[in-house]
Computed example of a mutant assay.
Amino acid sequence: MKIGPHRTEDPETADLAGLLPPPAVPDLTPERAQHLKAALLSRASTVDDRTAAAVRRPVSRPRLIRFLAPAVACALAVGGVVTFGTAETRPTGNVPAAASPEAARLLDRIALAAREGTRPPLRGDQFVYVESKVAYGAQSAGGGPVTLAPVHMRQVWLSADGTRPGLLREEGGPDSPLGADATARTTPQKLAQLPTDPDALLARIRAETGGSGTQAPGADPDQRAFAAIGDLLMETWAPAQVSAALYRAAGKIPGVVVVPAATDAVGRPGVAVARTSEGRQTQWVFDPATHAFLGERTVLTESGEAGPKGTVVGTSAILTRAAVDRAGETPRR
């Protein structure tokens, strides 16, 4: 079974529970699973401030292992998941009350770099093209150690306004069409509607992921918020001010730390911002000089059935992010 980043839940019946851990299910078709990706953003872009602050009770369900988010925006839309380990989340012990000062400072510098970055205008009839290298962890149905598959190419084309069919292409597999549905995806227009104040943005994300108010026993709302922010930073085309706000919001989450040395899926060295939960550490890897996002990886922090401490169980590297005119087209080099 593949251990990937994908959450498979029907947003029409789960009220944003796609960002919470669902039970194990078979891989979904891209068209159905595509509806999951926009759960957070479609709700976040339409609810008012009072609704965002309202208490929501998340659905209680078995724990989903989120080993890898290879540029997550589309990863959420097109894959499958398996359960692994305990049946319910347990909070990470001794989590500090805030992100470490080093992490907050680094994320502030990353936010400044993101805000100053420039991207060409994206027309509604274009596609966001993201090319990456990824490797997924896999585990047999009977359990045992996780095996990391070889790194392979991943390409995705996402309609800018959500009205045109997209495309997912992974090395070694057939092309997977992505259905057109502007209401079921995180389009640039929806990203642009998010708050640019970090506190307001984090409050919105916490509300939409069940991180404020009553929670399922043992749930880790901070990890859900951290994962949701990572999902909104990967295979997306976020406005510069929104990207900056997302990074600063992450700097306000308890338990976020700096990992001084980390590498992405193609071996590029960097510095990582990370958070540990359930014996796994999710790392966002950045170029130490330019603060550009390089990729993400997940590492075991506890020895167990999945493998020894320090085992990398998922990794990704973003190579290209560009605007193109049609699905299947690649930008000029």
Rank of each mutant, 00 (worst) to 15 (best):
K2M: 12
G4Q: 14
G4T: 15
T8I: 12
E9V: 14
D10C: 09
P11N: 04
G18D: 04
P21A: 15
P23F: 10
P23D: 14
D27G: 07
T29L: 07
A33T: 12
Q34A: 14
L36C: 10
A38M: 05
L40K: 00
R56D: 03
R56T: 09
R57D: 06
S60Y: 08
I65L: 13
R66A: 08
F67E: 03
A73E: 09
L76V: 08
A77E: 13
V78K: 00
G79H: 08
G80T: 06
P96K: 08
A97G: 15
A98N: 13
E102P: 04
L107D: 01
D108F: 02
I110H: 05
I110Y: 02
I110A: 10
A113R: 12
A114K: 10
E116S: 13
P121T: 14
R123C: 01
Q126I: 04
F127R: 02
Y129T: 03
G137N: 03
G142M: 09
G142I: 11
V146D: 03
A149H: 13
A149C: 05
H152D: 02
Q155K: 15
S159W: 00
R164H: 10
E170P: 02
E171T: 10
L178G: 07
G179W: 01
G179F: 00
A182Y: 05
A184G: 14
A184E: 08
R185L: 04
P188N: 03
Q189W: 07
Q193Y: 01
D197N: 14
D197I: 06
D199W: 05
L201Y: 02
L202F: 05
A207D: 06
G210P: 01
G211V: 02
T214F: 12
A219R: 02
R224P: 00
A225P: 01
A227W: 05
D231T: 15
W237R: 11
V242F: 00
S243N: 09
S243K: 02
A245P: 02
A245V: 06
A249L: 04
G255K: 01
V259R: 14
A261W: 09
V271F: 03
V273A: 04
R275P: 00
S277W: 02
E278G: 11
G279R: 04
R280Y: 07
T282L: 13
T282D: 10
Q283G: 04
W284K: 05
P288M: 09
A292D: 13
A292K: 11
E296S: 12
G304E: 09
A306T: 00
A306S: 15
P308S: 14
K309F: 00
G310N: 10
G314P: 06
S316I: 03
I318L: 14
T320M: 06
A323W: 03
D325M: 06
D325L: 10
A327F: 00
G328T: 07
